[in-house]
Design a protein around this nucleic acid. Sequence first.
DNA 1: GTCTATACCCTGATAGAC
DNA 2: GTCTATCAGGGTATAGAC
Lengths: 215, 215
Amino acid sequence: MDAPDTRQRLVISAMQLFWEKGYGSTSIADLLKKADVNSGSLYHFFPGKQDVLLAVLDMYHAGIRQMLLDPAWQGVDDPLDKVFALLARYRQALVESDCFYACPIGSLALELHEPDAPVRERLARNFSAWTDAITECLEAAGTRLPLALDRRATARFVLTTMEGGVMLARTYREVSYFDGAVEQLKLYFDHLGRDAAAPASRSRRTPVRRKGRAR
Amino acid sequence: MDAPDTRQRLVISAMQLFWEKGYGSTSIADLLKKADVNSGSLYHFFPGKQDVLLAVLDMYHAGIRQMLLDPAWQGVDDPLDKVFALLARYRQALVESDCFYACPIGSLALELHEPDAPVRERLARNFSAWTDAITECLEAAGTRLPLALDRRATARFVLTTMEGGVMLARTYREVSYFDGAVEQLKLYFDHLGRDAAAPASRSRRTPVRRKGRAR
DNA sequence: GTCTATACCCTGATAGAC
DNA sequence: GTCTATCAGGGTATAGAC
């Protein structure tokens, strides 16, 4: 428990390096140095660099509760507050890193242009675990959201907004772009809350009118 | 016009390669082969590989109308239809590439973990040109959107949604994740349209109620 | 399981004749 | 402006003693 074994040291170091520098820019030499491990040991545990990445992604997946959700939801009970508390966590990561990095999974997902199937599957699994957690929040919100609302689809939209917001903030190096995305999402949720408050009554079906031909 | 000169051939080839394989995975050798140019010629025009990237980003920026907006808006006049027609263009790119790639700027933005200032500025400039175009559409929509709505912030949200949706679709290799993001955005716009239809009347300020402490 | 030394390749970039 | 040949360096991965 105190002195982590070699394999674990490698995975933890890799997690940090991939987060800070990305996968491609992290060399085996970087990793060996950081973990204080020799080349021979690494290749004793892993067939190659990509397999270290797989282990890292598995660790993210296994630790989503302890590493991400629990800290983000410390002292937050309301399910809808939880949604935005999680987003606030990413904001914090952006601020602390001067808008360099926030979501390690998203960064890897776009860095690796043609990831092999096992990598891609693990990225997707991480995203799914994330949306599962948000879906639970939205379900726990009960009647405060429209009954007809698709909780899972909405949860995915929260992830979409987070990842998109992070991308913009990173590119502009200004956290305000992330804030803007969250603000818009909040407006959307406010609209949903209003709909739930007036359940199925009044002028539904009054979408944005189109002048030109639709589609 | 017919036989593009060497420099142009390099930039066009680079644009395509960076899109397909990413910047890091495109080697100078790849580029020379594709453009049918010799090493000496490349380094005659460009100090290094990164400067080719700068030229590519400049070309995207200069050609946003001809290369992106004009084709997307072929036969579309309604300003709000234009918003979704542009998104449909990205969907098409996803479908045609089996969800491998869609937005070259976004891909580069996340691939390059710590891009040098000139690169980052050009990425940001491209995003800004994109949101400018959408902002114009939203302004042209006039009273069909709430007067109080921040057009620019909403345009950024459209970009956020597009980029986030592309990331998810790429990761899951399923265009339905992009469709889901667009669908949610459409729902949001429908809500906005309803608000505009009932201008400033009726129960504003009925956001999602919170049970726990706010913030 | 751990260590050192090293093979071998591909990278971006250069030199210098034409 | 174009060509060929090549450099120096860093990349992943391996070999083989301990």
